[in-house]
Design a binder for these strands. Structure first.
Length: 800
RNA sequence: GCGGGCGUGGCGGAAUGGCAGACGCGCCGGUCUUAGGAGCCGGUGUCUUCGACGUAAGGGUUCAAGUCCCUUCGCCCGCACCA
């Protein structure tokens, strides 16, 4: 019989579907395992070969856990709101709902063709009103707790999309989605106070098992720093507050820089004598994105505010005030005290504008460059701080500032609040009513979901408002509080909203009374293993942790953290080693791979391609190796004879069971497959295989190649379905051979190889090594100074 | 500029501080064949052999370094000049 993968794969996929083989059961007495992969955005391009890398890896984990007796939840769904769909809808005059439906249908059939063991009965879709009802519900809870608020603020405005972007969505100074220019604009926006959770988000990283680089990246993003706020008085009598992490260097502050957007500039417009210049600079800065401001970092620009000055509170010296775009209004207080002696940017600025540079920490050469690496230095030119080490000076100056009432210690975070509004159609409507009398009033929960109304056009309004703003009938409503005339909010939520809690919905996806039942959440949470891309580390992953923590605080979810473990996969690149993209023409279509080689080969190759955590280039040639492997498994299975594991294969099987099991848990599927290949090579060399051997081999291979193994299981006549069996056990004692080859080294150079009993004593091993001709030759005439024996590895004779 | 990674055969990659190159691709040779771009068997880091040299380059720690430390170079990812 031939290995007809097309027939076999269809057959088993249908059987699994019919039987609901991979449905998680609601039997809360069983041990559970919740494996999660990031649900995809169903784009018009269809599935990318990168998607199955993550899905297959955790599919393997899920299948192994089922073998081990766990009640496994491995769900899938669709993160379907978003701009590409909306843009496609605008361009082609098709309703985004239709576009979404079509894209999902395609994605789903592609995923199904890979034989992934998702529980499709729990499929969720963020654009389904039954789903976003609860997204809106969570927003209302945030609003009621004061964590959602509206703020007139400087926002990133995309000229292309005509909409506001979260800072996090601006990539390289252009819109992440359309690539359009991003400028600053003032707009009243719904915001979420993620900053309120900054400390918790930081602290609780210590309680979760995330790979280290994810933790590091989140910590740096949250960016906690300790320092002080210092209030400088000015010649105008106003106070200018700065935040600094180096209050110890206050005596070295020779000027001040405020961001071009700083409000005090308007207040001083009458006294600033060069206001024309200031206004011009301000306008230029507004046109620049934060990224551009950083790009021109080397060439510092700025304008001195003539006619005003600040006063350094420690020595009463008047110091000039500048505006410069290297100071951002969004961090700290939007104003800094410049210490050119000990800060590189300030030093460059001071050099350019001919400002005084004072050394306040000994040790560097401030004529040549700023002395920044001075944490262990001693203070100079600093009055009462002179002679103190930097750390002590920090404490003393902070005490001084606090006593005098001109400053105090301050913890600062880089993390900023989340801009939670989009002037777009294809998103969850924000369930808020604007009442001229009562202000912003939340919709009553019984009114949810507030569904998206039908519109003619999805184009944002000319002024940048949402397409919903043109629907007078929909907008006009009554105030839930006073009953008077009021208007609906026309902005929608960002795409991140629906993905911030989807893993909760999987626990109980059809519940109409709650986002999920208490029992289901108690049982399934936390997610045991969550895998996703590094690109979501600071956006989605942080947002969803924030929402989860909030829901925990209001008693909706039972755990403070959503995910117990987080890993991250590397990207799959094109054959040319570049990122796959339409324009480069290096995109590989997974459908073709499945067609030409089968899903099992595809899965195997996705896992064998390289180190899971690193990027790996696709290579169509290499797929053949995985196909050959399965062909050989098929051929060997046809030769199967009765009997258990033959003695000469006993240790090989025990070792392979151990290795494959451990490697799956370590996310090292590539070496697990290599171990199975090695075992197959050994079996093939013996020209035969027994039923007992094949049973274990098929079980170990099943998570990787589920279709062919089920088929062979049935062909050989093993009882039941393969997926109902249990994971084989290994005996540690049988993983060890009775004899082992060790090397004999002289001064670290290999001189001989010795076959020795595995438990040979150190003395015997050394004696045996020394009796070897080559070893004896190498040590001849020398004095042996040291002898090292590493069990099962080597003997090293150190001779001089 | 800041933060996080990564540099190993022709290629993808293996390697608890302990024989560098497992496994696979490709390539070379053989076999079978009317044929081979199928299958099977053997070989395959570099150098001229005994042997020596080899994990981006240089230095260090160690009996022993791809692995740990320092310096340099190159590449990738993220970014908000974060005061």
């Amino acid at each position: 019989m031939k290995y007809d993968y097309k027939k076999i794969e269809k057959k088993w996929q249908d059987i699994w579907d019919e039987k609901g083989t991979f449905h998680a059961v609601n039997d809360y007495s069983k041990p559970k395992y919740y494996a999660l992969v990031e649900f995809p955005y169903p784009s018009g391009q269809g599935l990318h070969v990168g998607h199955p890398r993550s899905y297959t890896a955790l599919d393997i984990v899920a299948r192994k856990k089922r073998f081990e007796g766990y009640n496994v939840l491995y769900p899938m769904g669709w993160d379907a709101f978003g701009l590409p769909t909306e843009n496609f809808a605008i361009k082609n005059h098709i309703h985004p709902e239709i576009v979404t439906k079509n894209n999902i249908a395609r994605f789903k059939s592609q995923l199904k063709s890979l034989g992934l063991s998702f529980d499709w009965s729990r499929e969720v879709n963020t654009t389904d009103p039954g789903y976003y009802k609860w997204t809106q519900w969570i927003f209302l809870q945030l609003f009621k707790k004061g964590l959602a608020y509206k703020k007139e603020m400087n926002v990133n405005w995309c000229n292309g999309c005509k909409c506001v972007l979260a800072n996090e969505e601006v990539v390289n100074g252009v819109c992440e989605r359309c690539g359009g220019e991003v400028v600053h604009k003032t707009k009243s926006q719904w915001m979420l106070k993620i900053t309120e959770y900054a400390q918790k988000l930081l602290d609780d990283l210590d309680t979760v098992d995330y790979i280290e680089r994810v933790k590091t990246q989140q910590r740096n993003w949250i960016g906690r720093s300790t320092g002080a706020e210092v209030r400088f008085s000015t010649t105008q009598g106003d106070t200018l507050t700065v935040y600094t992490t180096r209050p110890d260097t206050l005596f070295g502050a020779t000027y001040m820089v405020i961001s071009p957007e700083h409000k005090i500039i308007d207040k001083w417009s009458d006294v600033i004598t060069n206001m024309d210049e200031v206004v011009a600079y301000r306008e230029a800065a507004a046109r620049k994105s934060d990224f551009e401001r950083t790009e021109v970092a080397k060439d510092k620009t700025g304008v001195r505010l003539d006619g005003v000055a600040a006063i350094n509170p420690v020595n009463d010296r008047e110091i000039p005030i500048f505006i410069s775009d290297y100071v951002l209004v969004s961090y700290g207080t939007g104003a800094i005290m410049a210490v050119p002696g000990h800060d590189t940017r300030d030093w460059e600025f001071a050099k350019k504008f001919g400002l005084p540079i004072i050394e306040v920490v000994k040790g560097g050469d401030i004529e040549k460059e700023a002395f920044t690496d001075c944490a262990t230095g001693i203070m100079v030119n600093s009055g009462f701080l002179d002679g103190l080490p930097v750390e002590e000076a920090k404490v003393k100056i902070t005490e001084f500032l606090t006593e005098k009432g001109i400053g105090e210690p301050k913890v600062n975070f880089k993390l900023r609040d989340w801009v939670f509004a989009r002037q777009r159609y294809w998103g969850e409507p924000i369930p808020i009513v604007h009442c001229p009398v009562c202000g912003y009033v939340p919709l009553d929960e019984s009114q949810l979901p507030l569904t998206l109304p039908e519109v003619e056009s999805y184009e944002p309004a000319e002024n940048g408002d949402s397409p919903l703003s043109t629907l007078t009938e929909w907008i006009e409503t009554t105030c839930p509080k006073c009953g008077g005339k009021a208007q609906r909010e026309t902005d929608t939520m960002p795409q991140w909203a629906g993905s911030s809690w989807y893993f909760l919905r999987y626990c109980d996806p059809h519940n109409d009374d709650a986002l999920a039942s208490k029992e289901a959440l108690e049982y399934w949470l936390p997610v045991d293993w969550y895998n996703g891309g590094m690109e979501h580390t600071t956006l989605h992953l942080l947002y969803s942790r924030f929402w989860h923590k909030f829901l925990y605080d209001i008693g909706v979810v039972p755990t403070p953290e959503p995910y117990a473990k987080r890993t991250s996969h590397g990207m799959i690149l094109g054959e040319d080693g570049q990122k796959m993209s339409k324009s480069r023409g290096n995109v590989v279509n997974p459908d073709e791979v499945v067609r030409d080689y089968g899903a099992d080969t595809m899965r195997l190759y996705e896992m064998f391609i390289g180190d899971f955590e690193k990027a790996a280039p696709w290579n169509t040639n290499s797929i053949k190796g995985c196909k050959r492997f399965l062909d050989r498994v098929w051929n060997l299975a046809e030769k199967v004879t009765d009997g258990g594991i033959r003695p000469q294969f006993e240790s090989a099987f025990h070792k392979t069971i151990k290795k494959v099991g451990e490697d799956i848990e370590r996310l090292k599927q590539n070496t697990a497959i290599a171990a199975l290949m090695t075992l197959l090579n050994e079996l093939e060399a013996s020209k035969s295989v027994t039923k007992g051997e094949m049973k274990i081999f098929l079980t170990l291979l099943n998570p990787f190649a589920p279709h062919i193994t089920e088929e062979l299981w049935e062909n050989i006549g093993f009882e039941g379905m393969l997926n109902e069996t249990t994971w084989p056990k290994y005996d540690e004692a049988k993983c060890v051979d009775s004899t082992v080859e060790i090397v004999a080294q002289v001064n670290g150079k290999v001189k001989a190889k010795l076959n020795v009993p595995v438990d040979i004593s150190q003395d015997d091993a050394i004696a045996l090594a020394l009796s070897d001709e080559k070893v004896a030759q190498a040590v001849e005439g020398k004095t042996i100074v040291k002898q090292i024996y590493i069990k099962g590895r080597l003997v090293n004779i150190v001779a001089k």
